[in-house]
Every structure is written in structure tokens, then in C-alpha cells.
């Protein structure tokens, strides 16, 4: 039976392997391109991800220090009691966000990748 396998079959199998593993090296880019900052529900800034900056905002409870570095953003210092926003650390991919609820602050990473309506789907 196995003598039915021909040389072309192996070539096809190799091509399939190559095509199948190609996406691992040529992946669609999901790094953030810009960060939108919302305070009290209104967008107050839209900063590009490629410029390293550090700045502070005046929020409900006091000052918030935000840093953008190496294409990622984080909250350095915050005037909120729990400091969950600080502990979130860096965000760098499209769709990620940092929120400081007491200060009503929201930082969202935006980019070319369209964010879909569902997060997931079960059959």
C-alpha cells in the first residue's frame, strides 16, 4: 500500500508544513500604536506610543503620574487608596487598558487591530 506514495506527495506535505508554520514568524502585529486617556468619561488625550513621555494629571483625588516608554504605558504614581492602577503595570497591546476608578481615569491602548464585539465564543 505504501508504495502508492509518490514524490509529489512529499513535496505537498513540505509545502503544507511551510505554509502552516509561516504565521508563527509573520504574525499580525498587535502592539499598541497610541494610548487614549479618558478622565471623567471624556477623552482628554491621544498619545502616540513611540514617543517616550512622562506627565501628570489632576484627577478627582489628586495627582496621577503617567509614563509612556518603549511603546508601553503605565501609571507611576496615583492618589487613589488602593493603587490598583499602579499595580497593573505596563500595557502594550491593542485592547489592553488601565483603569483608576476612584480617580475616574481610563487609559486604553488603541491600534490597527479592530476590537471585536465578543471576547470569545462557545458552541
Amino acid at each position: 500500500m505504501l508504495k502508492k506514495i509518490k514524490i509529489g506527495d512529499f513535496i505537498i506535505a513540505i509545502c503544507v508544513l511551510f505554509l502552516g508554520f509561516l504565521p508563527l514568524v509573520a504574525r499580525p502585529n498587535s502592539s499598541a500604536e497610541s494610548f487614549s486617556i479618558y478622565l471623567d468619561g471624556k477623552q482628554i488625550a491621544d498619545l502616540p506610543a513611540d514617543e517616550d513621555t512622562t506627565f501628570s494629571l489632576d484627577a478627582r483625588l489628586g495627582e496621577i503620574l503617567i509614563e509612556i516608554k518603549d511603546g508601553r504605558a503605565r501609571v507611576v504614581e496615583s492618589s487613589c487608596p488602593e493603587k490598583i492602577c499602579v499595580r497593573t503595570g505596563f500595557i502594550g497591546k491593542v485592547g489592553q487598558s488601565i483603569a483608576c476608578v476612584p480617580n475616574k481615569l481610563l487609559i486604553v491602548a488603541e491600534g490597527k487591530q479592530r476590537r471585536k464585539e465578543f471576547d470569545g465564543m462557545l458552541k
Binding site: G20, F21, P23, R27, P28, S30, R115, K116, M121
Partner: peptide
């Protein structure tokens, strides 16, 4: 239905 950069990780197993 979903995001291409998430779903693309299914390719290696599916290829094998």
C-alpha cells in the same frame, strides 16, 4: 468571528 492575531496560534497544531 474573533481576532486574527489570537486565532493564528491554532495554525501549527492544525497543520500537523
Amino acid at each position: 468571528f474573533y481576532r486574527i492575531d489570537a486565532v493564528i496560534w491554532l495554525m501549527p497544531i492544525s497543520t500537523i
